[in-house]
Amino acid sequence: MSDNAQGGTAAGGGGLATRWVELVVALLIVAGGAVVVTDSLRLGAKWGSDGPEAGYFPFLVGSALLLSGGWIVANVLWRWRKLASSVFVEWSALKPVLMMLLPSIAYVVLIKFIGLYVASAIFIGAFMVWRGKYGALPTASVALGVPVALFLLFEIWFLVPLPKGPLEHLIGY
């Protein structure tokens, strides 16, 4: 269970401080609350003659976000010293997380330009070679097999179009 995670953080080495992460997330919540409140005031947040206006509930929700976010901010600042030793994630553990996250972001950007199928093949293939050190044959079979299966399933069988790029246009899709 969570023992593993704690075991990891206790193992020493520098890392991202929990208190800063807590603070930033709470401030983002406060900012979100402010956005919601502003827009609900624009819509009208009163209880009109025939019940609440469009902004009535969003206004309450936004206010609750402001309050709860503010509460968390205050709480973090109050325990600022106490939290000093707490590490959100160690740099050594953050690395694998980013190794998953950054390629995923790149993958989504790629979909936009070359379509989902080709992007998926590149993403799966690259990940298998880079992280799993697989040889050419297993890599190629998974990296090509998954997009081809998806293509058959969605484009041909279910007739659900997914984002396509130059290669698919070339073969007439």
Partner: peptide
Amino acid sequence: PFSIIAPVIVVICAVGAYTVHHNMFDV
């Protein structure tokens, strides 16, 4: 192995998010 299944899951998540509204923004 995780290094095979992880990217496949990400791909399936992307396909799933796209098919809800046929919208890249959702991905």
